[in-house]
Amino acid sequence: MNNRLRSSGRAGRYVRQPLDYSAFIPNALPPLDPPLSIDIEMQDLLSDADRALGRLDGSIQTLPNADLFVLMYIRKEAVLSSQIEGTQSSLTDVLEAEANLLDARRPGDVVEVINYIDALRYGIDRLASLPVSTRLIREIHEHLMSGVRGQERNPGEVRTSQNWIGQGGSTLNNAIFVPPPAHEVGPALSALENFVHSNERLPVLVRIGLVHAQFETIHPFLDGNGRVGRLLITLLLCERQALSQPVLYISHYLKANRQRYYELLQGVRDEGAWEAWLKFFIEGIRTVSDEATETARKIVSLREAHRKLITDTFARAAASALTLLEDLFKHPVVSVKYVAELLGMTQAGANVLVRRMVDAGLLFEITGNARNRAFRYGPYVDLF
């Protein structure tokens, strides 16, 4: 049976449109008929996820100069979220692009991942002056879509035409899901914004899970909705102070369970299955929080081990090597020219230092070139 005819009405309703297709009109949050059921299973999941988030936040705050490491978490989330949408870029592609290394083999969509990084960092900074809102969502979308595939689809502008979700070549009449028509998008976003800042007595993760699913159902842009919706998860965690830094790569869980992710979102629309979606979402938060905490622990151990290695074996070059090491946590791919400029030394001196770092197993040459070589801080990148 066509799933557009099976909606329970709890999450919204399918409405036949003038061109003879059915579009889904979501109800305002929270679910009311019946009200959301937070049963014992969900309470246990929430308790575990809250503890995991607390451990993650604590572990990040114990990192020396946490800002150095946060960018790698953001990069990982950007890569994974973009891969869900079909991009082929890897973390290594992104690091090399940021280091201005040209490689014809690199996927052209690496710019989309870099835009995601910029959009997330912009959003986090913007929270200081603007709460999560339709305006902020539009600004983030503009950063995300500028200069990449879909840039012709009005970056930063809510759609004024119908879109749909389906396989390549699908139409409005055989799409998997048709979001609300354009004239319903503005009111739906306003209702969502009201819910975000309402006084509803709901656990933070329940609220965020509801918001993410509702945003994906509204699908307010012609492109980039999935990525913006996942960005919203991180922004809301930070705004609600569940995390002090954007170090949760939720897309790792969503990508690993992609089919289930899509099925549960559709289950909300067709069957009003909010609870099933929320349990999946909360379990995902717990899972990736634990993974990110373990990554933070490994970062601390790696940094201590490598600082000791340099101090014990680099003699007079130790001071310069330690300065370079700290910078590698922020810029894990470097050239000899970059090292020379960073440390204020000659090209020849930088070349000697880089060679010593290679011999120590800290840096690895990645271009295979005789000239214009680049080096990756492999042990650190491998943690992600």
Rank of each mutant, 00 (worst) to 15 (best):
G9A: 09
A11T: 12
V15F: 09
A28F: 03
P35E: 04
I40Y: 10
A49Q: 05
G54V: 08
S59Q: 13
I60W: 04
Q61I: 14
Q61A: 14
I74H: 01
E77A: 09
Q83P: 10
I84M: 11
T87Q: 03
S89G: 13
S90Q: 11
N115A: 06
I117P: 00
A119H: 01
L120Y: 00
L127K: 02
E142Q: 13
S146P: 01
T160H: 12
N173F: 14
F177P: 10
P180Y: 10
H183R: 10
E184V: 09
P187A: 09
F195R: 00
V196H: 01
R201S: 14
L202P: 09
P203L: 06
G209A: 07
A213H: 06
F215C: 04
I218Y: 05
G226I: 14
C238L: 10
A242L: 08
Q245P: 06
I250N: 00
S251H: 05
G267S: 04
W274Q: 06
W274N: 07
I282K: 04
I285F: 09
T287G: 09
R303V: 08
F314R: 08
R316C: 10
A318E: 02
L322Y: 07
D327N: 10
L328I: 12
L328P: 02
H331I: 14
Y338N: 04
G344F: 14
D359K: 12
A360R: 03
G368W: 08
P379N: 05
Y380R: 00
